[in-house]
Computed example of a mutant assay.
Amino acid sequence: MRLILASNSPRRRQLLTDLGLAYEIRLHDVDEDFPPHLQRAEVAEYLAAHKAAAYAAGLAPDELVITADTIVCLGDDVLNKPANAAEAAAMLTRLQGRAHDVFTGVCLRAGDGRQVVFSDQTTVHFRPLSPAEIDFYIAHYQPFDKAGAYGAQDWVGMVGVTRLEGSYFNVMGLPVHRVWAELARLGALPAGLPGA
């Protein structure tokens, strides 16, 4: 099957490339609102499936689209992408010194109608950060495209994340171990790769 990545995330692109997968990028604007009764993993899975639905009509029978959405949860509060520096600082202030959960929802939707939706969870432990560290990170890395206002692969992840329980790549935006397994199960891995 021909793989399509429906994401503007450079991290997701790099992860799929590092897996040895060939893919095409297709982008549509899709709103990221979700019903208020959904919680935690349900939000990530809903958003991934919602994004995939926007591509369904344009898929050829031999195409498969990969959509994903990553959210950060502090308890039951969902922290999405910050709108500005003040919002980013408020998020990072709430996260520092605490553990929180990162959920990435993924939808694999094939042009022949098959669809798989799943999510993965990683618990991230942050040491307490100083206001100066938070301000430095925001000023130099501008994490406005990242759920929870941080990237684990960025400076703040290197100096602030003390421990992960679960997949590091999930925190980056794609649980590649699960994506690989589901692509293999669907018979969508390219010839020449293990499991194809």
Rank of each mutant, 00 (worst) to 15 (best):
V176T: 15
I138H: 02
R163D: 06
L64H: 10
P10K: 05
T162W: 06
A53S: 15
A149M: 01
D77Q: 13
V117I: 05
R109H: 05
L129T: 13
A68D: 07
C107S: 07
R40C: 04
V159L: 10
V161Y: 03
R40E: 13
G173A: 09
G97I: 11
D145Y: 14
L193P: 01
D101A: 11
D77I: 07
F103I: 05
A56I: 05
E165G: 03
L164P: 00
A99G: 12
V171F: 00
G160A: 04
T122K: 03
V65M: 03
L59R: 11
G113H: 01
G173D: 03
A184K: 09
A86G: 08
Q121L: 12
P128H: 01
D69A: 10
T122A: 00
K51L: 00
P35M: 00
L64S: 12
Q121K: 15
Y137A: 02
E45A: 12
T67M: 03
A149C: 05
L108F: 06
R98L: 07
L174H: 06
F144L: 06
G187C: 00
V72T: 12
T70I: 04
M172F: 09
A89E: 15
V78C: 08
E87G: 07
F118H: 03
F144I: 03
A149Y: 05
R178W: 10
E32V: 10
G157V: 02
V159Q: 10
T123Q: 15
P194Q: 08
P175T: 13
A60P: 12
L186E: 08
E63P: 02
P194I: 10
S9K: 15
